[in-house]
């Protein structure tokens, strides 16, 4: 039981990272019905910003986090403007392939400057408390609380503000909403800025939890976060959070109670089973097809 609780804490930590990245996928998908395959690599860039700010500039945690989020947000918005915007009316898949290209570019560009894995200095003083038999570290607390805080903030933005309302409206109908005076391009840019900065935050926390980073780290984590978004119901913000935590839980628990090489297999098999019973994810709703 203790072991289980201990693993549960680890699952929360991993899950919140997945959830933060999944949010970026889901937000972009909700608005543009486009899978931004470069998102996992923006997460990686976030981790590298952390390396630069903390390792080279010796900054403390909060400025590092803010620099990373702001830098990646700018990058995300720039990518959208340069690479995705011209393709808004092209076949959907062209934008997806462009995103794959952008992702590869980011990976290999980073690789040129960092051919070897880099280790990131620890920014959060490592302290461990015992909650009964379960040990909990300061890093775990910060990751989980910060992630949940960011998610609540995002939920408030989407549900309560004018910008959030405009986002939801655009995801409903991209053709009509601009006619109501909503600045489409601005809202899309804001969506990218928020989504990618959450990914960057996840990158910073990931780099703190697993301090060796390399340019390809975003591929697998990105795909898994994407799967989280799908499990929750892609396009659905709360779904992405749930999906992230579910995937984190499944991965950690499989690794804890079965040979760790089964981890991917079980996670993906579960995904398939879920999709058979709920083809549109946990919170997703099928878009009605009119005949």
């Amino acid at each position: 039981m203790t072991y289980f609780l201990q693993q549960f804490l680890n699952a929360l930590q991993l899950g919140s990272i997945y959830a933060l990245i999944a949010l970026g996928y889901t937000m972009v998908y909700g608005i543009l019905t486009m899978i931004n395959f470069a998102h996992g690599d923006l997460f990686m860039i976030g981790a590298f910003f952390c390396f630069i700010a903390a390792g080279l500039l010796k900054l403390p945690f909060v400025p590092t986090l803010l620099i990373s989020m702001a830098g990646v947000a700018l990058l995300g918005v720039a990518i959208e403007r340069v690479a995705y915007k011209p393709l808004r009316n092209a076949p959907r898949v062209s934008a997806i392939i462009t995103a794959l290209g952008v992702g590869l570019f980011l990976e290999n560009f980073t690789l040129v400057f960092s051919p070897y894995p880099q280790s990131v200095p620890t920014l959060i003083p490592n302290q461990t408390w015992m909650l009964g038999p379960v040990s909990i570290s300061s890093l775990q607390i910060i990751i989980v609380l910060l992630s949940i805080g960011l998610m609540i903030l995002l939920d408030l933005i989407v549900q309560k503000t004018m910008i959030g309302m405009a986002m939801r409206a655009i995801s409903w109908d991209k053709a009509i909403v601009p006619l109501m005076g909503v600045p489409l391009n601005l809202i899309i840019s804001i969506t990218f800025a928020i989504g990618t900065s959450l990914g960057a935050a996840a990158g910073v926390m990931y780099a703190q939890a697993f301090p060796v980073i390399d340019p390809y780290m975003g591929i697998m984590v990105g795909w898994k976060a994407f799967i989280s978004a799908v499990v929750g119901g892609i396009g659905n913000i709360r779904g992405a959070m749930i999906g992230g935590f579910i995937l984190g839980l499944v991965e950690i628990m499989v690794a804890a109670f079965m040979p760790s090489t089964y981890r991917d297999f079980v996670a993906f098999a579960l995904l398939l089973v879920l999709l058979i019973f709920r083809p549109h994810g946990i919170l997703g709703k099928p878009r009605p097809q009119k005949v």
Binding site: I35, W223, V230, D264, F268, L272, L275, I276, P279
Partner: peptide
């Protein structure tokens, strides 16, 4: 068989998961 029920992005996930599962099975 999954393609009978799901389409588009969801089928993309199925194929992605398939790729990962094949790799994982071979590893085991």
């Amino acid at each position: 068989i999954p393609s009978f029920r799901t389409r588009g992005d969801y089928l993309a996930i199925v194929t992605l998961a398939f790729n990962m599962i094949v790799k994982s099975i071979i590893e085991n």
